[in-house]
Simulated scan of single mutants.
Amino acid sequence: MKKLEIRNKHLALRKSWSQEEWQLRNEQLHQLVVSYLDSLPKGTTVLSFQSIVEKREVATQAIHETIVNPPYEFQLAFPRVEGEGKMSAYLVHEKSTWISSAWGIMEPDPATSEKIEPMEIHVVLVPLIGFDLQGHRVGFGKGFYDRFLSQCNPDCLKIGLSLEGPVQQIDDLHALDIPLDVVISSERLYTIH
């Protein structure tokens, strides 16, 4: 399938879910994510994202609240779009404030957060609309994550979060698409080889 077909199909599917089904999928995903992250050492730096729950995206707030507290005690960073097509990462803490982007995504305020280099990040939780079993993802088509992931340490763990299962194959890949290492859906974990 082509990315546009996958995007349209999955966005329509999300709209068809009841509030209860969407919540259940998020609860199941939360359990699988924190279980998977349990093996990582304290102090791991994780880049995550603020979801737009009105669009039925993966609800990341519960994951964030879990992984910054014991026993995890991870450092949590979030993306901020700065300039044409460039995404930066900012470590946040309890006094960090947030600014709404042009897309309605909450981003860290640079005045109250610490900018870090992509090479300092150990794990990236990647938003997606769809994925295939080869680790390729369908996002919203802007390429921010692929450009950012290309700057990360090769050992950085790239984890996609999905409320749906995979498609067989994404047909229209771009040369700059960065495959994921793992995708965690609400039903199971997919390790990409």
Rank of each mutant, 00 (worst) to 15 (best):
E54Y: 12
P166S: 04
I121S: 08
C156L: 02
V182R: 10
Q50Y: 01
V33E: 05
L24P: 06
V68E: 07
V123M: 10
I178D: 03
S18W: 08
K158H: 07
L161S: 05
A62W: 12
Q50A: 04
S113H: 03
Y190E: 04
Y145R: 06
P41F: 03
L24R: 15
D181A: 04
E94H: 08
K95T: 09
L91Y: 07
S185H: 01
T191S: 03
I184Q: 03
W103G: 06
R137Y: 03
H10N: 11
M106Y: 07
V33H: 04
G141N: 09
M106P: 09
L189Y: 00
P110G: 10
D146S: 09
I105A: 10
L13I: 04
L125N: 09
R56L: 03
W98H: 01
L91C: 13
Y145M: 10
I159H: 07
E65W: 03
F49A: 02
F144S: 04
G85W: 04
Q151R: 13
R147H: 00
T97S: 15
Q134D: 14
S18E: 08
V46F: 13
W17Y: 12
Q19P: 04
D171F: 04
A111D: 14
S185Q: 13
A59Q: 13
G160F: 09
V58M: 02
Q168G: 11
I129L: 15
L173F: 10
E27M: 12
L37R: 02
L4G: 00
R188N: 08
H93W: 03
G104I: 11
V34F: 06
Y145S: 10
R56F: 05
L76V: 13
L163C: 05
L76E: 11
I170Y: 00
G139C: 15
V123I: 13
I129C: 15
H136D: 04
H30W: 11
P154I: 01
E120A: 15
V126P: 14
L163A: 05
L149W: 00
N26K: 08
I116H: 12
T60P: 10
T45Y: 01
S35T: 14
T191Y: 00
V183G: 00
K158S: 07
M119C: 11
S35G: 15
F140H: 13
G130N: 06
I170C: 01
I6M: 07
I184P: 04
I6D: 00
D177T: 02
Y36A: 03
N26T: 11
L149M: 12
V58R: 09
Y145Q: 08
Q28V: 00
F144Q: 01
K86V: 15
S150N: 08
R147M: 00
Q151W: 03
S113G: 10
P108D: 02
H30C: 09
H174S: 10
S35K: 15
H10K: 08
I6R: 07
A59E: 13
A111R: 14
P127G: 12
D109K: 15
L24A: 08
P79W: 06
D171C: 09
L173Y: 06
I116K: 11
L189K: 06
I6S: 01
I129Q: 15
E21C: 01
E82K: 02
Y36W: 04
K3R: 15
P79M: 03
H136M: 12
N69C: 10
V58I: 01
W103D: 08
W17S: 02
L133V: 14
L32H: 14
K95P: 00
L37F: 00
V123G: 12
